[in-house]
Simulated assay, not measured.
Amino acid sequence: MLPSGAFVLVVIATVILHCNGAPTNCTITLQQYTTIQIGWTQQQVTQFLGSPGIIVLEVGTAGSPYQMISVQYSALQSSSATASFLFMGGSLYTKSQAGIDAGVYTITSQQYTMIQAGWTRDQVTNLCGSPGSAISESGTGNTASVSVMYTVSGTPYASVSFTFTGGQITSMFEVGLSPPVNDKITLLQYQTVQIGWSQQQVTQFLGGPGIIVLEVGTAGSPYQMISVQYSGQQSSAATASFLFMGGSLYTKSQAGMDTGVYTITSQQYKTIQPGWTRDQVTSLCGSPGSAISESGTGNTASVSVMYTVSGTPYAFASFTFTGGQITSMFEVGLK
């Protein structure tokens, strides 16, 4: 068994080995990070930065084209900011940074709504007034990919991210953007919107385009996916989401829009069996439950329905009906 203190010595020895004798040498500036290019060898990066950094991951046989080594450096001004470099077969495959770029790059909800898949980074930069913070990069030429992040003024936890592949946006999402006033929806409106409607139909019916929270694929492609979110008319904590595939509504879901009380008992849950229809469940429980998500049409139509349990706020039961019959069911907290 190692004597006390031996483990500390091993850790210190490892740090010294990887940092050329001084942990403070494992630092990097934004200019250095920006200069390093995908395809550089690990030796080139080490020589350029003056130290090999801290190896945080090493997988595979040395010299193998599939060997992966991930190396990390800290910012010169702040140790909480880091830059990471992933080498594949000795060449830089991906680089990423968190906090190294301390610039202020902001975006508004209106600007985000205007941006579309297929836009170039120059287009986004011109609209927003800044290029954003490049948080990760990989690939070269037509396969080059860069993820760019913007923050939202006045909302410290809100952010927007775009991924550009081959120079154009291939995916985009946001967290915490406040929806405009016209991006509100009532339960009746949510229930009226039908699977198969076009995105234009939904926008016209609801009076606003909603907030795009995800956009993947080429505009006009039958495989393009766009997820749009609205908030409840009475409470911004309630949301309705619509996922469009190739321009048509593929799935819709809601959380908190339906404020009805739909309860179930443990005995009722145990009575219900796969294959039951929704009418059978409704008759037994005395209510239809809250339809939290819907997709498909005809024989492939699927709806997930939730019930709560009286007196136990964290207990619930969920049923998925496909083609009108229960195909899956589960519960949480039922005694």
Rank of each mutant, 00 (worst) to 15 (best):
P3W: 03
S4E: 11
G5D: 06
V10I: 15
V10A: 12
V11F: 04
I12N: 14
I12M: 14
A13P: 03
T14Y: 07
H18K: 13
C19Y: 03
G21A: 13
N25W: 00
C26M: 10
T29N: 06
T29Q: 07
L30F: 11
T34L: 12
I36T: 12
I36C: 06
W40M: 11
T41G: 10
T46L: 02
G50C: 04
S51G: 09
I55M: 11
I55D: 02
L57F: 06
E58M: 13
Y66P: 05
I69K: 07
I69S: 03
V71D: 01
S74H: 09
A75Q: 05
Q77W: 11
Q77E: 15
S78P: 01
S79M: 10
S80P: 03
F85N: 05
F85P: 04
F87C: 11
M88P: 09
S96N: 12
Q97W: 01
Q97C: 10
G99V: 09
G99T: 12
I100R: 00
D101C: 05
G103K: 10
V104P: 04
V104Y: 09
Y105G: 10
T108M: 09
S109M: 10
Q110R: 12
Y112L: 07
Q116N: 12
D122V: 08
N126K: 12
S130F: 04
P131I: 08
I135A: 04
S136G: 11
S138C: 13
G139K: 11
N142F: 10
T143Y: 12
A144S: 11
V148Y: 06
S153I: 07
T155G: 07
Y157N: 15
Y157T: 15
A158G: 06
T163D: 14
G166T: 14
G167R: 11
T170Q: 07
E174V: 04
E174Y: 00
P179G: 12
K184Q: 14
I185G: 02
Q189S: 02
Q191C: 09
V193I: 12
I195Q: 06
G196A: 08
G196S: 13
S198C: 06
Q200E: 13
Q200K: 06
V202L: 00
V202F: 01
T203A: 01
F205H: 10
G208H: 03
P209F: 01
G210I: 01
I211R: 05
I212K: 04
L214G: 05
E215R: 04
G217S: 10
A219L: 05
I226M: 04
S227A: 07
Y230P: 00
G232D: 03
Q233N: 09
Q233C: 02
S236T: 14
A238Y: 05
T239G: 02
F242I: 01
L243N: 05
G247N: 05
L249V: 08
A255T: 08
G256T: 06
M257W: 01
T259C: 03
T263F: 07
T265P: 04
S266K: 14
Y269T: 12
Y269R: 13
K270R: 14
K270M: 10
I272W: 02
W276V: 11
T277P: 02
D279K: 11
Q280E: 08
V281T: 00
V281Y: 00
L284K: 02
G289I: 05
A291I: 07
G296A: 08
T297M: 14
N299T: 15
A301W: 02
Y307A: 08
V309Q: 06
Y314H: 14
A317I: 08
A317D: 09
G324E: 15
I326K: 09
T327C: 09
L334G: 02
L334R: 05
